[in-house]
Design a protein around this nucleic acid. Structure first.
Lengths: 187, 187
DNA sequence: GCCACCCTATTCAAATTTGAATATAATAAG
DNA sequence: CTTATTATATTCAAATTTGAATAGGGTGGC
């Protein structure tokens, strides 16, 4: 659903063809917030077009390349956008975290392997934190606060994740993952 | 994938039938970490059985109810488990957050509606934080640290989310979502 | 000058997830 | 006593996501 929302949001600014949407997404590092899968994008565009929420402006044909189909958002599309936004704000699935599951079971396997991988993860998480903060800082005077909240929120979530990974790592190398009885202490 | 991991993990403790797995999941509030959809569960069980990672122990037939098929994990299944755990730790997609997208676009629509929904969200988030903390506290002396990290991590993530929602809410009621130029301040 | 890789643009089959339907029994609420 | 909800157990069609395939053109390096 949030792919549809993204498409509608971008078409609000100007008419585009699907591939162009991917470019804009990358430019604005939106691909960090919503997974950019070509298949899903084209699928969502088709569905929106079927439903009359977006419509074809023109098809650009050139002999060597695939046709470009440029779309525009319709009034129906703008209504759908409002609905989708409200719907998304409303529904609050808890943040599912695939690593949680893996970590709970990780004590059954070779702790050295786990530690190695966690190190990599921590390094990546550090990059993500830095990057997210940079993106935030660079946009302070450029984008409306709604977008800024998004960037700052991403920074904070990444930071929370990083701290968690570090605690895990410490326990793994200390061989404590199977211990019982002691609470987790914040650094 | 993490559904398969969950199934393998639980079958490690004892043989079960799929429905029983759902019960254990709820008991341990694992349904907060991984979405519990019956369809997905049965699908994953079928796939695991097909691949020889789990096998049928017995089928209990009773006249009035559907048959219960009880499964056990195989050696091949234990190997798969190790692989899946390492794989999950390795791959680090950034935490996709569907609300981010919605919020970035929310300034285009009626701010009062947004504020109302955010209030509800905040209330829910508060419950989640409290619940997550309770779950953590109650398990301190009962489960190994690997599981405890999971619970504490969940608490922290929920807390980060809550703070974020509150900042958003403040800006929405102050009508600042379209403003530019000022940084986000932590409370 | 050619090899390898990235860019442009889209399509497709296969895997997976979703959401609801099925059918019966037990328990609770009024 | 009757109606509503919850528990038992699984299945299925439809929607969606994934991951890779396609196919020609441009670009940088050696």
């Amino acid at each position: 659903m949030s792919m549809k929302l993204l498409i509608l949001g971008l078409l609000l600014e100007r008419d585009m063809h699907p591939y162009e949407i991917t470019l804009v997404m990358k430019e604005r590092s939106m691909d960090q917030i919503i997974k950019l899968q070509m298949g899903s994008l084209y699928y969502a565009v088709d569905k929106l077009a079927e439903g009359g929420h977006i419509e074809t402006v023109e098809v650009i044909r050139s002999p060597d390349r695939p046709d470009k189909t440029i779309y525009r958002i319709t009034d129906k599309g703008k209504e759908l956008m409002e609905q989708l936004i409200l719907q998304q704000i409303k529904k609050s699935d808890p943040p599912y975290h695939p690593l949680y599951m893996a970590l709970a079971l990780s004590r059954y396997i070779d702790q050295e392997k786990v530690a190695k991988l966690l190190e990599e993860r921590i390094r990546e998480a550090e990059h993500q934190v830095n990057f997210a903060y940079q993106v935030y800082e660079e946009h302070i005077s450029l984008v409306p606060r709604s977008s800024l909240h998004l960037m700052y929120g991403r920074y904070e979530h990444c930071l929370t994740e990083l701290k968690w990974l570090k605690r895990l790592y410490d326990d793994v190398v200390a061989g404590k993952m199977s211990d019982k009885g002691s609470p987790i202490i914040d650094p």
